[in-house]
Simulated assay, not measured.
Amino acid sequence: MTDTSTSSVPESTADATAAEPEATTAEETADGGTERPAADNKDLFRESEIAADYVEGLLDILDYDGDIDELTQGGRPVVEVVGARLQSLVGQRGATLEALQELTRLAVFRQTGTPSRLLLDVGGYRASRRKELAAVAKNAAEKVKQYGEAIKLDPMSAFERKCVHDVINALSGVESESEGVEPSRRIVVRPAS
């Protein structure tokens, strides 16, 4: 039972962002990097405004209609796009969304000179994916508790791994760590030591 995969998460991921160190624990961030020093809300909101302008330009080029919300959440800039006909901006398993997020981060970097931890969401994809991943994490934790053996989950993007780590960290009796190299980086859930 040591190499059991969950059916909720497919085997391959095309939406990985950047390569990460070999054995990152639950401190990994949703963008695959490490925490950067906290910026003040004014700087974060400026990043979200720059990102929103960039995304608005992309929507105009693509002739898509969408409302754009710019905010800060959890110490990071966030841009949310809502509207009809936006699924193609998410892509299969969020691959297109991840690519758009990277392009938007580059646009922010170009204007600020500082790497951004911007989170881009389209059509509420990330919120619904978080719920799915919470169920995957809880299911894996229950199996680990029941059988007492580690479980390797399917490869996931940095955002997905962060969501799973957050759920596992909140549970007792289990722990998680990431292993492997992008795009095959995965989480291992094991009994707590």
Results as ranks from 00 to 15, higher is better:
P77T: 04
Q111H: 12
Q87Y: 00
V78K: 12
L118A: 04
V144S: 09
P115Y: 00
F159L: 12
V79E: 03
N139C: 04
V108F: 06
R105L: 06
Q111D: 14
A140H: 05
G91I: 14
Q111N: 07
V108C: 06
A95Q: 15
T114Q: 13
L171T: 04
A99G: 13
A140K: 03
P155V: 13
M156D: 03
G124R: 13
R110H: 09
Q101H: 14
V136G: 01
R129N: 10
A140D: 01
L171D: 02
M156I: 07
K143R: 15
E175R: 11
N139Q: 07
Q146A: 15
R117D: 12
Q101T: 10
K138I: 11
Q92G: 04
P155S: 08
L89M: 14
D166N: 14
E175V: 14
D154Y: 06
Q87R: 13
T112A: 07
E80W: 00
E98T: 14
E142V: 10
A141G: 07
R85V: 09
P115C: 00
A140T: 11
A141F: 01
A107N: 06
V164H: 05
V90H: 05
R110E: 13
A107P: 05
G173C: 10
N169W: 02
L118C: 09
A135V: 15
L153K: 02
